[in-house]
Amino acid sequence: MSDIYQEAGLPLWLRPYEVLVTSSYTALIETIPDTASIHSIKSRFPNISSLRDYFVAKYEENSPNFKLAQRNFVESMAGYSILCYLLQVKDRHNGNILLDEEGHIIHIDFGFMLSNSPGGVNFESAPFKLTRELLEVMDSDAEGTPSEFFDYFKVLCIQGFLTCRKHAERIILLVEMLQDSGFPCFKGGIRTIQNLRKRFHLSLTEEQCVSLVLSLISSSLDAWRTRQYDYYQRVLNGIL
């Protein structure tokens, strides 16, 4: 998907990382330097209660650096939102979302995707994670109040979805090649591939896809079940 965005000349941003398999049960996973998880940022700076506070403290509100960090944040948020929706990436607590020095978010730990979820319960039912604190960095809020950066996020999500849709067969084929691998994400059987194909909505026109993406954003806005999953992780595992 990162290649697809780049080939199309889109500013949507992803940070792929390498995994070198060393046996059936072990691998070497590439370190992503100059990053920290949202959880560790909040742990390290107890006076910072939200991601917006961190951006203000690090980049100086209303400065050119602040605006650039916001732009980087939005471009990565859009890239990962489409990825999380299409591949149904779950377990998106703040220990699995990193922030780099330039303001990009980076998702890690893809142990739950396509058809499996933590505990076998699909608690994270929103299309992707779009909580209040993520919206606040885009100058919006839990209601999705329009702002320059939130509008930019919407445009990028639409462009990203339409572009990935043009390459649907390329993405589906890669997933199909692995369906007999025994990976837990294929526990849904043949429905795993069928549901992946459905999420591309190949029968819709591009105009209908615009409405579809806006509805995905709307149903992700500070979704109750997403908030509850974060709360569950905070209480059970101390993840802020």
Score class of each variant (00 low, 15 high):
G188L: 11
L114R: 07
A8G: 13
P46L: 03
Q88W: 13
I239R: 04
S24E: 04
I158Q: 09
V89M: 09
D141K: 09
G79E: 00
P16A: 08
S49P: 02
N65Q: 14
K58F: 03
E133F: 03
N72D: 11
S2Q: 13
L20H: 07
S115H: 10
L221G: 13
T205I: 12
Y17H: 06
E7I: 13
H104V: 00
K198F: 10
G182R: 11
Y5C: 15
K198Q: 05
S220I: 14
G95F: 02
G182P: 08
I32D: 09
C209I: 10
F200N: 04
I172C: 10
Y25R: 04
Y25A: 03
E60Y: 04
E101F: 00
I190G: 08
N237C: 08
L10W: 11
K90P: 09
N62Q: 10
S23H: 09
R191E: 07
F149T: 01
P64S: 08
K58M: 05
E169C: 11
L20C: 05
S203N: 14
E133V: 05
H39E: 07
I158G: 03
W13Y: 12
E176K: 13
L12N: 06
P127H: 04
A27M: 04
I82L: 05
P127E: 04
E102Y: 00
K166N: 15
Y231S: 10
L99T: 01
N94F: 06
E169L: 15
T26K: 12
H104F: 00
S63Q: 14
Y17A: 05
L174D: 13
D180F: 15
L202F: 07
P11I: 12
I41A: 06
L162E: 15
F149V: 02
V89D: 09
E133W: 01
L221Q: 14
Y80P: 00
R132G: 04
P127A: 03
L216E: 11
S117D: 12
R44P: 02
L162K: 15
A8H: 13
E148M: 01
E176T: 11
